[in-house]
């Protein structure tokens, strides 16, 4: 559906996208993941035809990007979800449908369907300027959907929403995957887990990794454990080190209760069975006469995943995220 080959984008002397290549298959929901400033929005803007590119080949559904055919095949929702505040929702969507060359007789049913799918039917006659952020976000989504394009490009569709609204938008997106190819960008890992089948990870304008959701999730499974322990600090550190499962161990005395000790232990690289290692570590601590108040599994952050993915040149265990490209 989308084919990006050796895409480069410069802003003056700043390189926003650096030799990026990836493909998106028809019918998949792909998460475009990266920290802020990684070049996600720039890439999506190029795909939408809004920005020009410095070099590289981009095709959408077989059409060169920035042509009528490519634009007609794409429903694009920009990051800030810009809308015309003075229009009513239904007026706006009819305008967008006409602009996107939906034939006159189809316009009403298409607009109705888009409103239904984006769940904005109840505010159809409200003025857009009066809507809440969550509704506006969904009006933007309805706009992307209205001409039933085969490809949807959504730039941070849940940015700035509260958790309830986020869940609603994610649910909507999940439903869209059945009929559309979806490429959505985000910097939140859990969002990818919630709505995507595949992930493309970029950082500093370069492709870091790509793989299925499961492969990325594996990376994220667990970064380490954090214990709250009552007992001697030196013993605690010794026992955890001896268990052989951990790399870095840091301890801090508890702020409220001086008798308690907070210990954070990161798994060793390439640890195969964190579950078993957790059991062993707890048993060892108890065996050494320490009392364990709580054990928390620390999920890795996006940064951890990046660190792991960029290291993935050295193959580890059963994980199969293939680094397609390394820094030159």
């Amino acid at each position: 559906m989308i084919s990006v080959r050796n895409l480069v984008k410069h802003y003056g002397s700043h390189v926003a996208v650096d030799d990026l290549s990836f493909e998106v298959e028809k019918g998949s929901v792909v998460g475009f993941l990266g920290p802020n400033g990684a070049g996600k929005s720039t890439t999506l803007r190029i795909l939408s035809g809004f920005l020009g590119r410095t070099a590289g080949e981009v095709t959408i559904d077989g059409h060169q990007v920035d042509t009528y055919d490519a634009k007609r095949a794409t429903g694009y929702m920009p990051e800030a979800v810009p809308l015309y505040p003075e229009m009513r929702v239904v007026e706006y969507l009819r305008f967008r449908a006409e602009l996107k060359e939906v034939p006159r007789k189809d316009r009403r049913p298409f607009v109705d369907l888009a409103m239904e799918r984006a769940r904005v039917t109840d505010v159809a006659t409200r003025t857009i300027g009066d809507l809440s952020k969550g509704y506006r976000q969904r009006v933007g989504l309805a706009d992307a959907l209205v001409a039933k394009p085969p490809l949807l490009i959504l730039d941070e569709p849940t940015a700035g929403l509260d958790p309830n609204q986020m869940r609603e938008v994610r649910d909507v997106i999940k439903g869209l995957g059945k009929e559309h190819t979806v490429l959505l960008s985000t910097h939140i890992l859990s969002e990818v887990e919630a709505s995507c089948d595949e992930v493309v990870v970029i950082n500093k304008g370069k492709l870091v990794a790509r793989g299925t959701k499961e492969e990325i999730q594996k990376k994220r499974r667990s970064a380490g454990l954090s214990f709250v322990v009552r007992g001697d600090k030196a013993t605690c550190v010794r026992v955890l080190t001896q268990s052989g499962s951990f790399g870095k161990i840091t301890t801090t005395p508890d702020a409220q209760d001086p008798a308690l000790l907070n210990a954070e232990a990161r798994w060793k690289k390439g640890l195969a069975e964190p579950g078993l290692a957790t059991e062993a570590a707890v048993a060892a601590l108890l065996g050494a006469g320490l009392f364990v108040r709580s054990v928390t599994v620390e999920k890795s952050t996006l940064e951890d995943v990046f660190a792991e993915l960029t290291r993935a040149a050295v193959p580890t265990s059963a994980d199969a995220v293939e680094p397609e490209q390394e820094d030159e």
Binding site: G49, F50, Y76, P82, L83, Y84, K100, D143
Partner: peptide
């Protein structure tokens, strides 16, 4: 200013 130019120019126009 409002950014609507982005939605406008990414439509087939």
């Amino acid at each position: 200013r409002s950014g609507t130019v982005e939605t406008l120019l990414t439509a087939p126009v």
